[in-house]
Amino acid sequence: MNKVIELIKLRKTYQRHFWTPVQTVLKGLNLEVEPGQIFGFLGPNGAGKTTTIKTLMGIIRPSGGRALVFGKNSWETGPKQKVGFLPESPYFYDHLTGREFLNFCGRLFNINSLILKDRTKELLALVNLTHAAGLQMRKYSKGMLQRIGLAQALINDPELVVLDEPLTGLDPLGRKEFKDIILGLKSKGKTVFFSSHILPDAEMVCDQVAIINKGKLLRAGNLNQLLNAKIKAVEFGCRNISPKTEKLLSELSFSTSQIQEQWLFPLKQESDVPRALEVIAQNGGQVVSVVPQKESLEEFFAREVAQDE
């Protein structure tokens, strides 16, 4: 029921000429995005992320299966009233200024001109382009195009925002700003679907992820559940320990390290924590910290993709 995005056995094939072999880019993708989710759509180069997003935006048509946006076929114009889209490495009309471009985009949604004027101003400020609003976009840098691209994606105050690699081409400050904007959208109850290669950043903003490779879905689900399912190690920190404690603890852990006074033992198993505490209690020393080490999204991603290869 009322899914924002629903892919059902989505297939896309390309054939350059009728005599060249058919290339299957999407091989039956199934995916569901619920309202209010920040959905990270991940995969290595050439996995089919952009192809999927283009299908969702009605830029290309599925060769098989269905791509539904707000329950309607993605090429229909109806649902697009509530959708905002930032294309991959965006390029816009050279001859327009940033402000003119936002005005143009707003008019494609039939937005009232007074509202549009205010919103243009707000959005230019939001993406930090007020100073370049009167500059023709031929003179924009890559990051500036990315920024104006995000602004135009928000011009209709969309319920669903689809971003194809929104963070590439931005400086570290820009990334932070974009992440804040995405989180801001979430707090307003919007749904965000974005693809990214910058996994640490993706990990910070999204609550759901899907990983695809070679046109197939590898994993999808809640980010915390996916990562928590596998606790790599528990980092056990202590100080003032006796040589005997050190010896016993190092038997339980992958390695041993010492920074000044403090010792770190990454325990092999979560269930070894009581044993480690016991060792300290019996042989002397102070416990400083017990930190479970989650797998990072980056490691999870690398492992999933490697398994698939």
Binding site: G58, I59, T77, Q81, V83, F85, P90, F92, Y93, L108
Partner: peptide
């Protein structure tokens, strides 16, 4: 640039 137009209503 047509991506911008086609993705709008």
């Amino acid at each position: 640039t047509i991506h911008v137009i086609v993705s709008k209503p």
